[in-house]
Design a protein around this nucleic acid. Structure first.
Length: 596
RNA sequence: GCACUCGUAGCUCAAUUGGAUAGAGCAUCUGACUACGGAUCAGAAGGUUAGGGGUUCGACUCCCUUCGAGUGCACCA
């Protein structure tokens, strides 16, 4: 059996120590256990300041008393030292060696047993009027990674994509294509479908601006001109026709959306993300009205004289929020109420995560509050995974000003950079062409994904296109390289997994440090899930790779002077490191190569 | 104006959730047995954690306040 809290035996003993010494009952949560800092002797540290009140003795004395107790009680505790309020405990090398062979080296290590709980992770959720950009990449990578992390924690996960396929924005592209497109198609133009549609979105905007200027020249104010420009009026008409089911408009809409979907599919594939369930706003945009009725009956909502329906959230520190227009049609939040219900009715999931940018913080606060007030039993399981915008040095990305970092372009560039780096090192000259292409993709995407995922989701991210993403230091390729190098050693040694344990009894400091790092993998997985933060995994695996590299640099494995049992032991240690690096990276959606 | 989020080395990020002398990478400088793979490793230098006040054994972390940045505050989505 894999033990997911290997240090619990220390906690238990500490509780007994406090009981025996100070006759007080404490809980496991009262004990702060942390890894001992490298500059001190020991591997596990108990913070003993909180017990000083109970012992009425100095921190040093208290620590010493508890230390003595642990030393007597636990066979695996080999020594301790006390510095101020910190009790540093040394655990025997036999324990750590056993931990490696019996826990860490096993395939199930870090795979939590099924929880019998379902989570839906909604992410990506693109508009169908333009191609994906860097902001979408962050969204996609976050969503995918969080889904993988939740799976590793034993959840059943449904990855959902709510496609915003209707509305004025797509009508703008459609109209511009109709007026200026001359029947251009992805085939005829050689453009990827989403880029083609995006091109006409830009055309619309350009022509629209022209009309605005003309109207202003005729004496209209900016505001008037924006409202009166023929193009915007036409686009609005088109939307009405769409809603009325006009066959020609629907046909055009279907055609152009199909172009976009083909383009998205390509981008998603390259990004390495996927979905179990697609929702389309064209199907869901009318949902939610019946729930508004339900809420009216329960007096969660109230109706104004003009017929519009509202919810009053002033008691919660928010405002009054409209949920139904006076003409009876629904608004954005109404749809989301309906879609949330639809999702739940379909899957009965315990949790539902929305991966959406932080500009919608308020929206989700209101949405979740509405569902709670409606008494939905599943409302507490809703969570908005809010992430920061990706900014350029010049500020926000603006599609109209052409400062958007296109997703396809960026991925292409990353592969090119990977190619340049790799060729300069000249280590893979024996690779075939397709093998090389794959490798460049793996490394380029590794650099990009790691760059985006190592930052805490809620923080905003600065991306400087002029400064290429690093391949050295705290980066994806650094970790990939560590993996490739371990694999190389293992291959050279002809190592196969599951080889017999050795009777090694003592550890070198670097070996011990490495086992400790490996041992923290399950905790990192758990913390990443608790915080919905791939950054936890990213930083963990970096630390691990660094620890391995330090070990590797200093300790020979295959050299002649290394005794057979030590060699065998270090191979097991290396194999475990490679495995956990690979698994960690896969939680980030990053592949690791065998050679690079 | 109101609300939310953020502010850590020149730059990009950490800090075991309130614990020890705030750690990494990049950039700069110095070094590594003729490389079990140098996309590596060792070292130097770099900090009043935006400023001020408070809470306590202890604060980057919690509270108040000032400053700065971002976002939101539509019968748009």
């Amino acid at each position: 059996m894999i033990n997911f809290a290997p240090m619990d035996f220390i906690v238990d003993a500490a509780i007994r120590a406090v009981k025996a010494l100070y006759n007080t009952d404490i809980n496991a949560t009262d004990i702060t256990l942390q890894q001992t800092r490298k500059e001190f002797e020991g591997q596990v540290t108990i913070v003993t300041f909180p017990f000083v009140k109970l012992s009425r003795k100095s921190p040093e004395q208290t620590g010493t008393e508890i230390g003595e107790f642990l030393l007597n009680e636990l066979a695996d505790v080999s020594a301790f030292n006390v510095i101020k309020g910190f009790l540093n405990i040394s655990i025997s090398d036999e324990y750590w060696i056993g931990q490696l062979y019996n826990q860490i080296a096993r395939p199930e290590f870090g795979v939590y047993p099924p929880k019998d709980e379902k989570v839906m992770v909604e992410y990506s959720s693109p508009n169908t009027n333009k191609p994906l950009h860097l902001g979408h990449i962050r969204n996609n990578l976050l969503g995918y990674s969080v889904a993988e992390i939740l799976k590793a924690n034993g959840y059943e996960v449904i990855k959902a994509n709510l496609v915003n396929d209707r509305g004025i924005h797509i009508c703008k592209s459609m109209l511009a294509w109709q007026l200026f497109g001359n029947g251009e198609t992805p085939e005829s133009s050689g453009l990827k479908g989403d880029h083609l549609v995006g091109k006409y979105y830009v055309v619309f905007d350009k022509e629209y601006k022209k009309q605005i200027d003309e109207l202003k020249a005729l004496g209209q104010t900016e505001e008037e001109a924006k409202k009166n420009a023929p193009l915007i009026i036409q686009a609005q008409q088109m939307l009405e026709q769409w809603e009325a089911g006009d066959v020609a408009v629907i046909d055009l809409w279907k055609t152009m959306n199909s172009w976009v979907y083909a383009g998205f599919a390509e981008t998603y594939k390259k990004l390495g993300v996927d979905f179990d369930q697609y929702y389309y706003e064209s199907d869901t945009y009318l949902l939610g009205k019946d729930i508004i009725d339900e809420g009216l009956a329960k007096s969660v909502f109230f109706k104004k004289e003009d017929g519009s329906v509202w919810i009053d959230l002033t008691a919660e520190g928010l405002d009054q929020k409209l949920v139904l227009r006076s003409n009876g049609t629904s608004v954005y939040i109404t749809q989301d109420v309906g879609t949330a219900q639809l999702k739940y009715s379909q899957y009965h999931m315990d949790k539902s995560i929305y991966v959406v940018g932080n500009e919608q913080d308020y929206h989700f606060k209101v949405l979740f509050l509405i569902l709670k007030k409606l008494g939905k039993s599943w409302a507490p399981g809703l969570f908005h995974l809010s992430y920061g915008m990706v900014d350029l040095p010049s500020g926000k990305m603006k599609s109209r000003e052409g400062t958007v970092v296109d997703a396809d372009d960026l991925m292409e560039e990353m592969e090119q950079t990977a190619k340049t780096h790799t060729e300069a090192l000249g280590k893979v000259n024996s690779f075939g062409e397709t093998e090389k292409e794959q490798l460049y993709h793996t490394i380029g995407m590794g650099a990009l994904k790691y760059f985006l995922l190592k930052v805490e989701p809620k923080k905003r991210l600065l991306f400087d296109p002029a400064e290429s993403i690093d391949f050295q230091g705290h980066t994806g390729p650094f970790i990939q390289y560590t993996h490739a190098r371990i694999r190389s050693v293992l291959n050279k040694a002809g190592y196969t997994s599951g080889e017999a344990s050795t009777d090694i009894k003592q550890l070198d400091a670097l070996e011990r440090e490495l086992i400790l790092a490996l041992n923290q993998f399950p905790e990192a997985i758990m913390q990443a899930a608790r915080d919905y933060s791939p950054a936890v995994i990213a930083n963990y695996v970096y630390e691990l790779a660094k620890t391995y590299n330090k070990f590797y640099q200093d300790k020979a494995i295959l050299k002649d002077e290394v005794p057979a049992d030590v060699r065998q032991f270090r191979l097991t240690l290396s194999a475990a490191a490679a495995k956990i690096i690979k698994r960690s990276m896969s939680l980030l959606g990053i592949m690791v190569p065998e050679r690079m």
